[in-house]
Design a protein around this nucleic acid. Structure first.
Ligand SMILES: NC(=O)c1ccc[n+]([C@@H]2O[C@H](COP(=O)([O-])OP(=O)(O)OC[C@H]3O[C@@H](n4cnc5c(N)ncnc54)[C@H](O)[C@@H]3O)[C@@H](O)[C@H]2O)c1
Ligand SMILES: NC(=O)c1ccc[n+]([C@@H]2O[C@H](COP(=O)([O-])OP(=O)(O)OC[C@H]3O[C@@H](n4cnc5c(N)ncnc54)[C@H](O)[C@@H]3O)[C@@H](O)[C@H]2O)c1
Lengths: 222, 222
DNA sequence: AAGAGTTTGTGAACGTGCGAACAAACTGAA
DNA sequence: TTCAGTTTGTTCGCACGTTCACAAACTCTT
């Protein structure tokens, strides 16, 4: 279907386009130009067209794109036309939020198990799903063909959890613990690091206002 | 101090180096080579050295880097030697987790207020901080000199919340709602989109195993 | 003091990504 | 049919990011 490899930068934007297309459909807009879609996605229209050209030629010159058709093509390219079973490990503050997050289940991702090492939480229902023991990981992965694992444990446990996931057959990991995971080459890890995001904002903020004399916000102790 | 502008890709990695340095200090390692630090940070050592060279010449040839000194220099460059007051808006599932997240407060970021539009939650204590009305935003920003705002509301409210933040004087926004925010040029927005991260993983996963015949994980309906 | 060994900082080559600009392809009117 | 107007898909130049490779600068031994 897609003979050419898609650039990584493009892959990272496809979900954004998908969101924009869904938003247009919600407003009953059936067709759109690259300019409109680019605005909705917050990117340059030339970039959008080049990105889409990597998937194929799904627009019509002089007309634009059919919203539903393009959405299907992007979904198919990403792999959202199939179902992706997911396990979440570490059901603390963040794990609870993730389990309740509708954005996970809405797009083909299905939480098949919530795992935690803390025995006192086993059996507790979160978003209708019981918390189970981490030791059941291997069996669950085999049973449901889980390919994607989410780590929401403390950093100290993350590498061990990751190793177990890989041993069980998982080859894609979404890591929320603030630690670098070392994995074999065929395993993908994506890291979500809130602390880093704040620090990047702080860097730019500092550059904007280099003159912080008697400004408030420094008198209170953390 | 730093006459030259630091490349964006480098800025995004500085927090990672900082984490690695802290981790080395925890192990009582006072000095390290670029190779060691690069391994701890999960990057190429040449890239690490080039990144650090943008800050200045803080290493010693033939020896390596002093861990504590380098940590201080990076902290200073990012702006973590000063205190950053932060407000979080939308104290639902995710907002609760964020308020409880120690990684926020640990590095100079101080949550000064939790705001929500839902009156029934006002006064409730989360991580020792009371939930207050969203209408108090302007006053709080002025009072504490808040420069960074975190949005954890539903997507439908995010743009309005963002506009209010900017009107109040906030110029850096961390957005968790899955929607594109339109802001003036002098405002920075960073977006954390879990759904996108999962989709990117799914894309690569699909490429790894293009042969999904009778594999499990497709029989159950979402 | 000199030389061997180590490690940083950087110049240069290479690859990727971005945006402007334009030809190709479509629609619709005359 | 022909022509004007519109919008896609793609080419091209440029900027940015990554990696290699090595001179410069340090330590330590003899
Ligand atoms: N709370 C946030 O908003 C937030 C944001 C970003 C990152 N994080 C990171 O996400 C992780 C979780 O944060 P949290 O606030 O939910 O912490 P938490 O302490 O509330 O939850 C951690 C959970 O992991 C479980 N756990 C510990 N070791 C385990 C193991 N070996 N196997 C399975 N489960 C194990 C614990 O029992 C606990 O339930 C942390 O690494 C944190 O730094 C949290
Ligand atoms: N839960 C997750 O793990 C998760 C992960 C990623 C992204 N998100 C996104 O983060 C956002 C919050 O998720 P959640 O699960 O916490 O949702 P939630 O419904 O539990 O919480 C949303 C909160 O925002 C408040 N709110 C609504 N409108 C507001 C307004 N105009 N001003 C101030 N407060 C307002 C609500 O009262 C509620 O308390 C959503 O956009 C969601 O898509 C959530």
């Amino acid at each position: 279907m897609s003979p050419t490899r898609i650039p990584e930068a493009t892959v990272a934007r496809l979900p954004v386009y998908l969101r924009a297309l869904n938003s247009l459909l919600d407003s009953d807009i059936r067709s759109c130009s690259s300019e409109e879609l680019a605005t909705a996605a917050g990117v340059n229209s030339a970039k959008l067209r080049k990105d889409l050209s990597h998937l194929g030629s799904y627009g019509t010159r002089g007309v634009g794109y059919d919203v539903e058709y393009l959405r299907y093509q992007i979904s198919r390219e990403i792999g959202l036309t199939q179902d992706w079973p997911v396990v979440i490990v570490g059901i603390g503050n963040l794990g609870h939020a993730l389990a309740n997050f509708s954005g996970f289940s809405s797009r083909g991702f299905r939480t098949v198990a919530l795992l935690d090492a803390d025995e006192s939480r086993h059996g507790e229902l979160v978003a209708g799903c019981p918390i189970r023991d981490f030791g059941e990981l291997g069996q669950i992965v085999r049973e449901h063909g889980v390919a994607i694992g989410v780590i929401a444990t403390p950093a100290s446990a993350a590498q061990a959890v990751c190793d177990q996931m890989i041993a069980a057959g998982i080859r894609s990991v979404l890591n929320f613990a603030p630690t670098v995971l070392s994995v074999p080459e065929d395993v993908d890890v994506r890291m979500v690091d809130l602390s880093s995001e704040l620090q990047i904002l702080a860097y730019h903020e500092q550059r904007k206002a280099p003159h912080v004399e008697g400004a408030p916000g420094t008198e209170g102790v953390a």
